[in-house]
């Protein structure tokens, strides 16, 4: 579904992405992991064509993104950013309807199909009845769910998530990723929390200093050795008592 091949990107003398190659198979949820500044956000921006790579190729659904029009790309891939905010006084349904922008036929009115897609998207993030709620009255968790509904209303084949749970409490973090999983769309998600990644992702890709240092099933990749190499932390990895997914417990730094 998504392939990234030999992508380079530098800023000044610093190499932000250094020969990144990875793929996201159709239907899977892939976690993009790595410490701050390792290039996760830049990689997502390159995939969404917000940043131009110095070299390399990104294909979504078989087509090089550089050859697609913005509107075509927006119908294939939707991005959910870390933190979206606006000064404008919008209602939840108006925000969700923004997701119909790349599908619109008319320059002026919303079609019945647009309305139906927006209503359906709100239901899929468990926000039925929130259509007329104003953006400013929503909690952080609700805002991210409205943004997820906006992304779903784009009816994309690929969902790109840039640390979407960063500002949320643990209940909302679990709920949001559960909704993403339930939506059943091929997803590449940059995540900070390794336990959440291990719980929800089919595979994970680990970036360090712009290079892919490991990729595979969470149980194979998230080893104490890798955590020490990449994050510089000591940790134990044990199977989750209920699900069996790897669960990481950290040790305090040796003083």
């Amino acid at each position: 579904m998504l392939t990234v091949t030999g992508v380079f990107r530098s800023a000044g003398a610093r190499q932000i992405l250094d020969d990144v190659t990875c793929r996201v198979p159709a239907g899977s949820l892939v976690g993009l992991l790595g410490p701050n500044g390792c290039g996760k956000t830049t990689l997502l921006r390159v995939i969404a064509r917000l940043t131009t790579p110095d070299a390399g190729r990104v294909t979504v659904g078989g087509d090089d993104v550089a050859t697609l029009s913005r509107a075509t790309l927006a119908r294939r891939a939707a991005l959910l950013a870390q933190h979206a905010d606006t000064d404008l006084d919008l209602t939840a349904i108006e925000v969700v309807l923004l997701g119909r922008t790349p599908h619109r036929r008319s320059r002026w009115s919303d079609s019945a199909a647009d309305r139906a897609a927006a209503d359906d998207a709100l239901a899929r993030v468990d926000l039925d009845g929130y259509a007329d709620r104003r953006w400013h009255t929503l909690s952080g968790g609700e805002r991210q769910r409205v943004q997820l509904a906006r992304a779903l209303a784009q009816q994309p084949r690929l969902l790109l998530l840039d640390e979407p749970t960063n500002h949320l409490d643990i209940g909302h973090q679990l709920h949001l990723l559960h909704l993403v999983r339930r939506a059943g769309i091929t997803t590449l998600a940059a995540l900070h929390d390794l336990n959440l990644a291990a719980m929800f992702c089919d595979t994970v890709v680990v970036l360090a200093a712009g290079r892919v240092v490991a990729a595979g099933a969470p149980a194979e990749v998230l080893t104490p050795q890798l955590l020490a190499d990449v994050y510089g932390v000591h940790a134990d990895v044990v199977p989750h008592p209920a699900t069996g997914s790897p669960t990481i417990t950290y040790h305090p730094p040796a003083s």
Binding site: A48, L50, R70, T72, L73, T101, W108
Partner: peptide, 23 residues
């Protein structure tokens, strides 16, 4: 008037507008 709907897409910033398919 022709760009009214496109202007709506700028509500969450230019990057958001770009990922919604706006040039």
């Amino acid at each position: 008037a022709v760009h009214a709907r496109t202007l709506n897409a700028f509500a969450f910033g230019e990057d958001a507008a770009a990922t919604l398919g706006v040039p």
